[in-house]
């Protein structure tokens, strides 16, 4: 009754075609079929944000998306953030600001930050905290994350004005 079906979408610019069951989440398919294990599984109920990816320009938790729903979608994952071996401003700011400890929430937080800065290039502390409210971190206490996001935003602003 639940025959496998072919689903086609793009991930970080690459066209992919996979065979999946309707019950498979996008998270499962990204990690297990496409080997894109940078996206993490945390709670699997939409609370923690570790599995955040950008789908058609919007951040979503990939544990609450069925892979079959991604038919025709454009996806961006943590693997698509760096340019080759060069980290982007957000990744660099997280490293410089020591905005991570165990690191499991970090890919989701960086992807969510990319979505934030796309929408709001110059966020206030309150904007950052509100936008990242769906990403839980049990290590850092968030302050360093918020500062790293603002540092990345500033770096991009400076780069854009030069």
């Amino acid at each position: 009754m639940s025959a496998k079906r072919v689903v086609t979408f793009t991930v970080n610019g690459d066209q992919v075609e996979i065979l999946c069951e309707p019950r498979q989440s996008l998270l499962e398919v990204l990690r297990d079929d496409l080997d894109l294990t940078g996206t993490k599984e945390g709670c699997s109920n939409g609370n923690c944000g570790a599995c955040t990816v950008i789908m058609d320009g919007r951040p979503v938790v990939s544990c609450l998306v069925l892979a079959v729903e991604a038919e025709g979608a454009e996806l961006r994952t943590i693997e698509g953030v760096a340019c080759g071996s060069t980290l982007d401003e957000v990744q660099a700011a997280f490293l410089e600001g020591a905005a991570l400890q165990c690191g499991i929430c970090t890919p989701g937080i960086i992807v969510q930050t990319e979505a934030l800065l796309e929408e709001n290039p110059n966020p206030t502390e309150d904007d950052v905290r509100f936008y990242l409210a769906g990403n839980l971190c049990r290590c850092t206490g968030y302050d360093k994350i918020v500062r790293a996001v603002q540092a990345a935003a500033e770096k991009r602003q400076v780069a854009a004005s030069n």
Binding site: V60, L64, A133
Partner: peptide, 9 residues
Amino acid sequence: IGGIQIQSR
């Protein structure tokens, strides 16, 4: 309603 990711859907 939820966080930003939830509001996307």
